[in-house]
């Protein structure tokens, strides 16, 4: 299976997808919405362009604003498989690209005693003993693929060099096997929390999208979609209060994920409207630090907690 593709000239860089995923920005919005992802105009435009221009999409923004979710939604819309490389400190080639299955190789070596070494070597460095990791997996499939490189900022700088290579040529060289080129370029999404500044070179490869906290109207729609039982008025109040909390310069500003959690909590509590008691009792759902809770309580004129 692999060998077939090795026949291709290694410097043949595939064109961007022949059949684009989306017909227009509106189309992006509408179809993402069907999967439960409500895109702002900025998100929809950038996704549309990433597809049309065939460039990876670098998504930055605070935790919980839907960066990961976006990649999943695009995969679902495109009917594509989602291949995810979760980055962390110390993630390396053997986790990101491929690894040889040493245990299996050893078994094979001890099994084939009467072969010549050359024969054995050719055999143990073949497809059968290769453990593909996400980057290789994403490049060599024939089916449409969304490659999610999640939390890129957590990986070490060396990893960036590797990503840069892969994202420039969409090909990977396995010395023992040859070069694998993508027959079909995956739709690539990199996410980052800006924990570490990514290199200029990597940024240049990508379209850049910053997802911040959503506009009030969009967040209201997200809440209504995720927590359908909530009344319109209560959803509006929830979003207003969260908006005010975000303006407060807290240690950890509440994100969309927290807004949704809070809305769920209120529904579970059977709260009909926001009042002082309800807010006071449930503030812990949205704010994670004790000093944030105190600050917010003071600002919102809640009696001492």
């Amino acid at each position: 299976m692999l060998n077939k593709r090795l026949d291709r000239s290694p410097d043949l860089i595939p064109d961007p997808p022949e059949a684009p995923l989306f017909t227009s920005v509106d189309d992006v919005c509408a179809r993402l919405a069907e999967t439960g992802y409500l895109a702002s105009p900025a998100v929809a435009t950038t996704v549309f362009l990433a597809d049309r221009l065939g460039k990876p999409l670098l998504v930055e923004g605070p935790a919980g604003v839907g960066k990961t979710e976006l990649a999943k939604a695009v995969a679902q819309v495109a009917g594509a498989r989602l291949v995810r490389l979760q980055c962390y400190e110390g993630v390396d080639e053997s986790r990101a690209l491929y690894e040889w299955n040493h245990a299996k190789q050893l078994l094979r070596i001890s099994a084939g005693r009467d072969e010549s070494w050359d024969e054995t070597r050719t055999d143990i460095f073949s497809e059968e003993f290769l453990l593909p990791r996400p980057l290789l997996t994403a490049i060599r499939g024939d089916e449409p693929t969304v490659l999610l490189i999640d939390e890129t900022d957590k990986a070490d700088v060396e990893m960036e060099g590797l990503l840069l290579e892969v994202l420039s040529d969409f090909q990977i060289t396995v010395p023992e096997l040859g070069t694998v080129s993508a027959t079909r370029r995956p739709f690539v999404v990199l996410t980052s929390n800006a924990g570490r500044e990514l290199s200029e070179a990597l940024r240049r490869r990508c379209l850049f999208l910053h997802i911040g906290f959503p506009e009030e109207e969009l967040e209201r729609r997200i809440v209504r979609l995720k927590v359908p039982g909530l009344t319109e008025a209560l959803a509006a109040s929830v979003v207003r209060v969260v908006g005010a909390l975000r303006a407060m310069d807290l240690r950890k500003a509440p994100s969309v994920a927290e807004t949704v959690d809070w809305a769920r909590t209120l529904l579970a509590l059977g709260a009909g409207a926001l009042d002082e008691t309800v807010v006071r009792d449930s503030l812990g759902v949205i704010l994670k630090h004790q000093d944030d809770i105190q600050k917010a309580a003071a600002k919102l004129d809640l009696d001492a907690l």
Binding site: A236, S237, A244, L274
Partner: peptide
């Protein structure tokens, strides 16, 4: 249709 009530103390901001 802003919900009024509690959230109105945020109005000024």
């Amino acid at each position: 249709g802003s919900g009024g009530g509690f959230a109105d103390r945020l109005l000024d901001d």
